[in-house]
């Protein structure tokens, strides 16, 4: 069977790659084209994309030449440097000094928005903060019920309308409730949407504007929830969501899986949007601040 053969081949290639990288790490190898090719392949397999990986390796090659590096062991710190450099954009702290801090969560379908809202709510609740969850996803079947369950589990208040109602109106009411109840944070769970759907993107722009009417300066954070399993299309997502909502940051979810989410390197570098948090599981505890060094370590370490 041709597929059996292909599969066996893939397995070989994969373990071969692993061995090669281990050799890279253990040092003692010559710094040559082969080594750079392997580094490039590692980057590609982490979803950094062909073009970005290529550019990064060229930069790396240049630096190795300038610094006269001849041992592969000395290359590792440089790789970290080069990649981390691209990832350093602003701060990863959430802007929460406003009361209420209005946080709007956006992204494509299934990226983990609702779960991320729950995780954020839980984080505030752990600090004894008062949280309002706004069920702005009035479109997907049972999305409101899903958020409701999380509101109960985290001890947050929820503001909800009926399925099919105007999302902007829910956002407005959630913020108004946040002000009236002196909440510390209002977290808006918007419906997933393909960045290619201009009507739905417009709707999101409206939610954002209405939030600003409910409370001048709001939303203080607009966070794009990005599934780490996503490939090069993540860049398009970031661009489109950026253009309608002015993103303040990215939350990279599902890093507990086997994907590394390397596409954020180009996103951060080219769009200047920082990664603020990462999701590492389905529970409400599974949210961590983003750490560039740790991230790079997970790719190359």
């Amino acid at each position: 069977m041709v597929f059996e053969r292909l599969r066996a081949g893939l397995e070989r290639t994969r373990s071969h790659m692993r061995d090669m990288l281990n050799t890279v790490l253990s040092g003692g190898r010559r710094v040559d084209d082969e080594l750079f090719d392997e580094i490039e392949e590692t980057m590609i397999q982490a979803d950094m994309g062909f073009a970005t990986a290529h550019a990064l390796v060229e930069e790396l090659r240049q630096r190795c030449r300038n610094e006269r590096i001849t041992d592969s062991e000395a290359v590792m710190p440089l790789i970290r440097d080069v990649v981390e450099d691209r990832l350093r954009q602003g701060t990863s702290d959430l802007l929460t000094d406003q009361t209420p801090a209005v946080i709007m969560i956006v992204g494509v379908n299934g990226s983990g928005k609702t779960t991320t809202c729950a995780k954020l709510a839980h984080r505030f609740r752990t600090d004894k903060k008062r949280v309002i969850l706004g069920a702005v996803d009035t479109f997907r079947a049972a999305a409101i019920d899903q958020l409701e369950v999380w509101a109960q589990r985290t001890g947050a208040d929820i503001i909800r309308h009926q399925e099919g109602s105007d999302p902007a109106a829910v956002a407005f009411d959630a913020i108004a409730a946040g002000i009236a109840r002196r909440a510390d944070a209002v977290i808006l769970d918007t419906a997933g949407r393909m960045h290619t759907r201009s009507d739905l993107m417009k709707e999101l722009g409206k939610v954002r504007r209405v939030a600003g009417k409910a409370l001048p300066g709001a939303p203080h954070e607009v966070l794009l929830v990005l599934d780490a399993t996503t490939g090069q299309n993540a860049m398009r997502q970031a661009e489109e969501f950026q253009s309608v909502t002015e993103l303040t940051g990215i939350i990279l979810t599902k890093l507990d899986g086997s994907a590394r989410g390397g596409v954020v390197v180009s996103i951060v570098d080219q769009l200047g949007i920082p990664v603020k948090m990462i999701g590492i599981g389905e529970g409400m505890d599974d949210l961590r601040p983003f750490d560039a060094a740790e991230f790079v370590e997970a790719i190359f370490g």
Partner: peptide
């Protein structure tokens, strides 16, 4: 499988 999946698709499906 999500059409937007990146490089890990092969390992996931495998």
């Amino acid at each position: 499988a999500d059409a937007m999946t990146g490089q890990e698709a092969v390992n996931i499906a495998g």
